[in-house]
C-alpha cells in the first residue's frame, strides 16, 4: 500500500532526512475570559498572554539516527516532539516529511506520514486506556489501517508483544494488572504494531526504576537494530541521552542552544548552559563532591529575558547578550552553538 512514500533508502552514507523542521515555532495564547474582555472594552490594560513554547527551531533528523533532545522543564521539548510526531500543528515555520511539506500532502499521504511516526509517552499509567485489554490496545490500530486481517490479528498481536518483551499469554489482561515497566512495553508494542519507521519517545523511561529503565533502554536499542528505526529521544536525563544518542540537541526556553554529535557535546560543550547542565549532573563516579549550582531560576516562558534567554544566569554574559538573540552558528564539524562568546573569541 502506498509504497511511493515509504520506499526505504538504498544508500546509507549520508542518509536522507526523514523529517526537517525549518523555523518552527509554537505559541500558546491564553484568551481573555468574558470578564477580561468586558474590562478591556471598558479601558483596562489587559492583553492576551502568549507563551512561546518553541521559538524558531531548525532541526533535521536523518534516517537511522537517534537524536537526543535535552532540556529542563518548560523548555518546549515535549511541544517540539509533538509537532515532529504530527499531533500538533506548528504556529509558524514548515515541517518537511521526507522532503515534502506536511501541509502540501493530500489526506491519504498525510495519514501515512503520521502512521510512520509513532510516539511513546512518559507516563505508562496515563497513556493506556484502562478499559481495554492489552490485545485490543495493541491490535486496534493495525486492524483499522488494514495491516492485519481480523482472522490473523491474534497472531499479529502475539508477535508485537513478544518483540516488546512481553509474554503473549498475558494479552487478555487489563493495563492495571501490569507493572510500570511492563506497561511501557505495552506502549512500545502498540507503537510498533503499525510498523513505524520513526519513534518519538517523550521521557519514555523517566517514570521507571533504574533497573527497569535499563531493560527498556536495551529494548529500544535492540529494536533500532532489528527494525532500522529512527528515534527522537526526548529526556531531561543526560546520562540516558548520552548512552543512546548519536546526536544531541539542547534546548533552553523554546530555543535550541547547542547541537552536536553526542561524544562532542559531552567532551567539548560550547554553550555556557550546556556546560552548566553537564556540571550539575550527579555522576556515580563522583564522591563527596561540592555541588555548586547554576545561579537563579528558569525564567517564565511567559516573559522570557531579552536577547539570549540564558543571559541572567550566565556567568559570562556581556552587553550584547542582553539585546541580541544569538544565532546557531557552526563551531566545529556538525557542532552548532548559539552564543555570542564564539564571535568575541
Amino acid at each position: 500500500m502506498s509504497a511511493t512514500l515509504v520506499a526505504p533508502p538504498a544508500a546509507e552514507t549520508l542518509a536522507e532526512p526523514i523529517i526537517e523542521l525549518r523555523g518552527v515555532s509554537k505559541r500558546f495564547s491564553k484568551t481573555l475570559d468574558f470578564a477580561g474582555r468586558l474590562a478591556k472594552r471598558l479601558g483596562a490594560n489587559l492583553r492576551e498572554e502568549v507563551v512561546h513554547a518553541v521559538d524558531g527551531v531548525d532541526l533535521t533528523i536523518r534516517k537511522g539516527e537517534v537524536v537526543g533532545l535535552v532540556g529542563e522543564s518548560g523548555c518546549g521539548k515535549s511541544t517540539l516532539g509533538r509537532m515532529v510526531a504530527g499531533i500538533m500543528p506548528p504556529s509558524d515555520g514548515t515541517i518537511l516529511w521526507r522532503g515534502r511539506d506536511l501541509r502540501s500532502l493530500n489526506a491519504a499521504e498525510a495519514r501515512n506520514a503520521k502512521l510512520r511516526t509513532q510516539m511513546i509517552f512518559q507516563d505508562p499509567y496515563a497513556s493506556l486506556n484502562p478499559r481495554l485489554k492489552v490485545q485490543e490496545i495493541v491490535g486496534e490500530a493495525p486492524l483499522f489501517h488494514g495491516m492485519a486481517k481480523r482472522s490473523e490479528i491474534g497472531t499479529y498481536v502475539d508477535e508485537q508483544l513478544r518483540r516488546a518483551g512481553l509474554d503473549p499469554s498475558l494479552k487478555a489482561r487489563y493495563p492495571h494488572q501490569f507493572s510500570g515497566g511492563q506497561r511501557q512495553r505495552i506502549g512500545i508494542a502498540r507503537a510498533l504494531a503499525v510498523q513505524p519507521e520513526f519513534l518519538v519517545c517523550d521521557e519514555a523511561v523517566a517514570a521507571l526504576d533504574v533497573s527497569i529503565q535499563a531493560q527498556i533502554l536495551n529494548l529500544f536499542m535492540k529494536l533500532r537494530r532489528e527494525l532500522d528505526l529512527t528515534y527522537l529521544f526526548i529526556s531531561h536525563d543526560l546520562g540516558v541521552v548520552e548512552h543512546l544518542s548519536d546526536r544531541v540537541v539542547i534546548m533552553y526556553l523554546g530555543r535550541v542552544v547547542e547541537e552536536a554529535p553526542a561524544e562532542e557535546v559531552f567532551r567539548h560543550p560550547n554553550h555556557p548552559y550546556t556546560k552548566a547542565l553537564l556540571a550539575e549532573v550527579p555522576r556515580i563516579e563522583a564522591r563527596k563532591r561540592a555541588f555548586a549550582g547554576v545561579k537563579g531560576e528558569i525564567p517564565s516562558p511567559l516573559n522570557p529575558p531579552s536577547g539570549c534567554h540564558f543571559h541572567p544566569r550566565c556567568p559570562f554574559a556581556f552587553d550584547r547578550c542582553r539585546v541580541e538573540r544569538p544565532a546557531l552558528k557552526q563551531v566545529g564539524p556538525g557542532h552548532r552553538s548559539a552564543c555570542h562568546l564564539n564571535d568575541a573569541a
Binding site: 552548566a276 556540571a279 561540592a290 547554576v294
Partner: peptide
C-alpha cells in the same frame, strides 16, 4: 526538580 535546581538543593 530539574538538574540545575537539584544541584542547588544538594549544595
Amino acid at each position: 526538580l530539574d538538574v540545575t535546581i537539584q544541584g542547588q538543593i544538594l549544595a
